[in-house]
Amino acid sequence: MSGPNRRVALKVVGATLGAGAFAYAAQPVAQWGAGLSLEETLRRHYKELTPDELAQILRRLEAETKEKYGVDVRIDDIPAQEGVSFGYALNLSICIGCRKCAEACHQENNHDRRTNNSYIRVIEMEQGSFELERGTVDYDHAVPAPGKFYMPVQCHQCDDAPCVKVCPVEATWKEKDGIVVVDYDWCIGCRYCEAACPYHARRFNWREPEIPADEINPDQAYLSNRIRPQGVVEKCTFCLHRTRRGLLPACLEACPTGARVFGNLLDPSSDIRWVLENKRVYVLKEELGTRPRFFYFFDE
């Protein structure tokens, strides 16, 4: 075989091998791509949808949930209410750290069962110190333990929310009633909001959530507790699928001591207003200027 011919042959062999290697290496990417729905990928932003388009999306999501999890669920889009601005306060004097709120959140919001995910993280702190660094979250002794107090932390629904500011695609925004929501079908999963949040309020779906069919809460809302897709950020929505229907949030109902107070800040006769006006109120990391709607308070 002459020189140039051998060269050509070598090149052909090399190119074939290269193409084969590429096909093999790209296989998982192709598989991932095949699993995507074009309809979902190309849909417009939540705020740009017409009511018809939104209804169509809700039905599609219900069908997808049925297919994937084998349950009939109802996914609603519930707009905010006029004259309502939500606020939440938590009594640090009577919280006993039982984590029942975290558990209720876990169940209500269809969280991944493997990770015990919850929007609430309860910190056990030393009496006489507000130093978070001395706190623990994985305590497993009987509570309330002597010499300790407990601080559940969840989304503070800040009025000047750093997470909303940093989102490059407006996948998260503040609603009229003060709730910061995420459109799970618009989020690109960059996790900048997770870096920006000072309250560890955001969670990323590191994998697709796994929930047994009989444990799925079928009463769902688009911006709240519908089962999240893989690779997007989620957060506490003050259970908007409940609270926008007048119900109390799940974490409040689960609280055995009544440490949690929820209500309409615009209603002067509401319990939340009474707490803010009469109790000693503490705002976590107030110095950051995020203007939370979540307050801590103390008895005497």
């Binding site: 007048g246 119900l247 109390l248 055995p256 009544g258 929820f262 209500g263 308070f297």
Partner: peptide, 29 residues
């Protein structure tokens, strides 16, 4: 007294039901 006052303002003792009493009632512990 203080517990009673707090209870009466919904900041002591758990509850279930509605925050919005125009929609439905509430059950206090």
């Amino acid at each position: 007294g203080p517990q009673t006052r707090d209870y009466d303002h919904g900041s002591h003792g758990g509850m279930t039901g509605h925050w919005d009493l125009s929609v439905g009632g509430r059950v206090r512990n």
